[in-house]
Design a protein around this nucleic acid. Structure first.
Lengths: 206, 206, 206, 206
DNA sequence: AATGAATGAGGATTCATTCAT
DNA sequence: AATGAATGAATCCTCATTCAT
């Protein structure tokens, strides 16, 4: 039991270290980009030795994947919680709005993540496409579910639900990314609402 | 004068070579991605010598920028022509539809360009952001003009025109990019119309 | 006394561990070669922890040397026994034949040792040369003794005894090594006899 | 034609450089061994820049292979010439003696080669085994031919010719290798004759 | 203009060894 | 005794760029 406890502590320590490295990697990757970041950079930022990175991650690429995995999970959990916390069950639009708002909030609070997702991810080319695709698809899948429910309830017109979902995801992602560079002077909430309004009502005056 | 003529011919030759190199670069960049492509790859594909590339372009990066410049111009010309060729002057929606359709056609006929624009461009990180931004902004600027006209004519609701324009551009780009990987089984024209319909009418049943 | 007993047991355990590690090392070294083998490989094969290897051996190289020591001793013991078991005392040729046969048997039963001796040993370059030399020299020294006895008894022609001894050793080793790669379709005994016959009678018809 | 000439000169230069690198590599490999030699070592010894090595050879390993190829060819040519230069056509023993002597001379004049063949080659493990095997087999094949001729002429007893050939090769190689470390105080010619005598007449007094 | 040889900085990765626990 | 996390030196190879011809 003593051994078990000691092991538990050790495991925690190890996890702790892993998390620290991930955090450091996130900072560096976001600032310099995946390609320009060296393992030495990450090591220095994490205040561990050069080779220690390799004790926790198999390669630079694996480190990036692990990072995206973690971040993707956090994002999705945040969104899910937001959707559940709203009157989502009864009202499709509220759910959609909650999801989009939550995403924007998350991105707003974590610009590094936006950079990682929408710029650096491409640096890995096809090797990451599948993974990024996975993260995206998770998000899109959730949206699709909402869309389908809306269609069933008659509050959403007939339209290919997956494509609609992807469109929303694309808008959210691209606008968030754009806001890294261009200041549109708008609050995140306003932008989120803009997207939902556009998607729900379109541009044609009613 | 004889000299001038010879020079003229030479200049044409030179331009010809430049174009060949650009074409080769496009093929290689599109296939392997910017980072993974070496100057040697481009040289071989263009059937010129190793160092010749540097006679025509200052650096690998400059080559990529030049390529994007050329491609961006062609795309924009294609769209402009399509818009003018439609009954664009009187009808905002037709113009928008023409623009989106033309873009999709262009992308459909040139998958390499899509890859270049939406994947490799990011590989250059901040260094390219400005340039990509430029191409984008050109496209977005044109769209914005249309939107503003529509708003003035009362066929488009009040909404931040630049953000609407960016949204359309983002949708077009991201969906085109997605189609590289995922087959949605739809014709380019159908997808284009989907986008315009979504943007014009939204999802709420009228 | 209790303490002494406990210590005794512990020492046995320790020796046991040492032997296990040596056995594991032999397997791994023989399969992957000295250079390509990592301490981690050995540790895993021996089912001990990473750093434990260093409790028993000072370094990777020391481990290899220890292994060679052990194996060399075993080989020599096997040969010695074989020679003594034959009518060696009176008959030089029988003794030589017994020695060569025994060596081949031993090698045949332990291909890993052959690989270790005749391939990996060289990987240590000069550092091992001396040691390998030692093992060899032991074998050669024994052979030399036989040769000298034969010369004294008049059944062996005058010839530099050490060089003869080395020649026999070289033949045995190289042919055994070759048999790892090339199948000559011959039994070990036949090959052993071939060597002895060649060395004793030469190729010229009598 | 001028162009052709210039090209010819350039090709010679290139070949010249390649040869210089090979020569430098030989020196360094022989002194430090394959593993311990770095590309930087070779570059320095060849007085070319680091990366230039890679212009001529694909990898460190490829460099080694090329080196062995060259050396193997030279050795074989030397032997062939020696055999032809002796009264080889009529007399088997002379031919064999000439071959063994020539090999020893060659090895004596080029200790580095001996080291390369009989020590460093093993450092590449299985990857080189095939190549080394090739060099060996060439030599052995030639010897086998001689043996077969001798058997046909009745001056060589019945014995598996390939194994005899291999035995001779092994003796030559191993004794030459041994002489790198141990001084037996004998001239190369004497050792060569010792080998041939041993192989031809054996140790049993006639 | 064109060639392609030469350069060398740069970086990911490996692994023997150490050491705190 | 045993563990396994930590270290960081070491090295191969890549490739953009330069430059003599």
């Amino acid at each position: 039991m003593a051994k078990a406890m000691r092991r538990a502590v050790t495991d925690e320590d190890k996890e702790q270290r892993r998390v620290e490295i991930l955090a450091a990697a996130k900072r560096v990757f976001a600032r310099k980009g995946f390609q320009a970041t060296t393992i030495a950079d990450v090591a220095k930022a994490a205040k561990v030795s050069y080779g220690s990175i390799y004790w926790y991650f198999d390669s630079k690429e694996a480190l990036f994947h692990a990072l995206m995995e973690t971040e993707g999970d956090a994002l999705r959990a945040h969104i899910e919680q937001a959707v559940l916390g709203s009157g989502a069950a009864v009202d499709l639009e509220s759910a959609l709005r909650a999801a989009v708002r939550a995403t924007f909030e998350f991105f707003e609070a974590d610009k590094a993540l936006v950079r990682l997702l929408f710029r650096d991810s491409y640096a890995l080319g096809g090797r990451f496409e599948k993974h990024l695709f996975g993260i995206y698809e998770g998000f899109i899948g959730d949206l699709e579910l909402l869309i389908r429910q809306g269609q069933k309830a008659g509050v959403i017109v007939k339209a290919p639900p997956r494509m609609v979902a992807f469109s929303v995801a694309a808008l959210v992602g691209q606008i968030a990314h754009r806001r890294l560079v261009t200041d549109d002077g708008l609050k995140a909430g306003v932008v989120a609402d803009f997207i939902v309004d556009l998607v729900m009502d379109g541009l044609r005056p009613r």
